[in-house]
Design a protein around this nucleic acid. Structure first.
Lengths: 118, 118
DNA sequence: TCCATATTTCAAGAGTTCATGAATAGTTGA
DNA sequence: TCAACTATTCATGAACTCTTGAAATATGGA
């Protein structure tokens, strides 16, 4: 990921509605959610939702597909992963203290790895 | 980290000059850098730099201390770590695909862990 | 074809962020 | 106390982002 893509992704994430949107779509999983359902869930007007969805999609953080009358949106996990990786690799130079924080996140996985280890 | 702090951090990171600033300060390490030196390195005017430094400091991503005539700025690794953790935990629900991407970042550490494992 | 549903696009206005240069404040040494 | 140096604050205007509601586009069924 290059700097301009990372900036686009960070700008896209730097808004309350869009952060809620990402959270909701991760909760929805790979199946995604129709725009109308998202609007009802978050209480956003159609045009406002469309605006924010477009920002997230342009930033590569979500994807969409049309199914009949509906447009289904779903997260692009790799897009968000690449953004986080950019922060860790290119901005922090893999700073151990930051990585330690990041490790804390995947707590479930870390524990599983510990078990695997013995 | 709560939502409003995460939004402040993401907004702070969503600007080219400030991303460069974070990168430079991570490279400088715990010792940090004086504002004037930063300005010369990045080619920013004093007031513009001061503006962006204030944004990053308010967002908890960097800290400052005065040393004689200089003000020394240094990264707050925990601030950035907490921001990344927020994205992973609260926004992605520890999505395995995103975590896998994140794992890729601490490549050095991951390899060390692999060696430890046998 | 006509209508209903679902979503996006557009235009206008409000609000926010940013860059610039001048003014101000804090620190040191003569 | 004064001058020199370092850094921040302030005022202005330009640029950008966001919200709103109306209009337009796309799809499916009667």
């Amino acid at each position: 990921m290059d700097r301009s893509k990372a900036l686009a992704a960070l700008s896209a994430l730097a808004h309350g509605d869009r952060l809620d949107l990402v959270r909701l779509l991760f909760a929805a999983g790979a199946g995604g959610m129709a725009a109308g359902e998202i609007a009802r869930t978050l209480g956003l007007s159609a045009s406002r939702l469309s605006f924010h969805l477009a920002q997230l999609e342009q930033a590569g953080l979500i994807g969409s597909r049309r199914v009949a009358r509906n447009v289904i949106y779903a997260v692009d996990a790799q897009g968000l992963g690449a953004t986080i990786r950019y922060l860790l690799n290119d901005c922090c130079g893999e700073d151990p203290e930051v990585i330690a924080c990041c490790r804390g996140c995947g707590a479930g996985e870390a524990e599983a790895a510990d078990r695997d280890r013995g």
